[in-house]
């Protein structure tokens, strides 16, 4: 069973300190929601863990089953079992969805999947997320709507089967139908109880579909309050105002 441990993580962007010591442990079978106002550093946490070159780690550790992810390259982190569902997946011209997915699955599993099996898995995954099979031949994210991009992020999540998934505002920009479809995908991913989920969101809406075990409030680059699902209800009622004032 896997564990992601974030220890006193400090991150800067162009010499500006964004994360000021984040501590958080996500175990397999747990879903943690990180909630916070815009600009609190939530997405920085997600991208820093994944290894985006724009973010400089100035202190701390991120351990996945004892291995410090910060010592690994971006692709090595993914192969170690980390997955980041992006808030704004980029369009990659000329690279088809199916070609990309097969390359990714091959890299993560360490061997190429059997073609027939892969085609079957892909079709099943797309069906479950109500993705038109024609998308497999389209260029990655090119011309996809916001909702289509998010469905494809979850499709990748289900195909790659990471140990720990970080979902960065996967709910943003989704209508209710798309939110339900995407949430069902996340729930399938965590159903077996062998994977951990770190769900970053601004709104409580998605938490009605994806029930968290823990809720953390993020403000000013660190976690300022922690609790159970009831904390989300409190935020829903009161907003972030109390936290933004405190961190200002």
């Amino acid at each position: 069973m896997s564990t992601l441990e974030i220890r006193d993580l400090q991150v800067a962007v162009e010499d500006k300190e964004i994360l000021r010591g984040v501590n958080l442990t996500v175990r397999a079978g747990e879903t943690h929601a990180i909630m916070g106002p815009n600009g609190s550093g939530k997405s920085t946490l997600a991208y820093a863990i994944a290894g985006h070159p724009k973010y400089t780690i100035t202190g701390g550790q991120v351990l996945l089953d004892g291995v410090d992810l910060l010592e690994l390259g971006v692709d090595e982190r993914a192969r170690a079992g980390l997955f980041l569902a992006m808030q704004y997946p980029v369009e990659v011209p000329g690279v088809s969805v199916s070609n990309f997915l097969r390359s990714a699955v091959t890299a993560v599993r360490g061997e190429a999947p059997k073609l027939r099996e892969f085609a079957k898995d892909l079709k099943a995954g797309m069906d479950a997320l109500s993705i038109d099979p024609a998308f497999a031949q389209r260029n990655l994210n090119e011309g996809f709507s916001g909702g289509e991009k998010k469905r494809h992020e979850i499709l990748q999540l289900e195909l790659l089967k990471p140990k720990i998934a970080v979902l960065d505002e996967t709910d943003s920009g989704l209508d209710v139908d798309a939110l339900r479809v995407v949430s069902e995908g996340i729930n399938r991913f965590r159903a077996a109880g062998e994977t951990g989920v770190l769900l970053i969101t601004h709104y409580t809406r998605i938490l009605r579909y994806v029930k968290p075990d823990f809720v953390h409030v993020f403000a000013g680059g660190r976690i300022v309050e922690e609790g159970g699902p009831e904390l989300a209800d409190k935020l829903e009622a009161e907003g972030y105002e109390a936290y933004t004032k405190a961190s200002a």
């Binding site: 994944a50 070159p53 971006v74 692709d75 192969r79 992006m86 890299a107």
Partner: peptide, 9 residues
């Protein structure tokens, strides 16, 4: 970055 984040070297 996007491709690497999916494990592709």
């Amino acid at each position: 970055f996007y491709l690497q984040a999916r494990g592709i070297p």
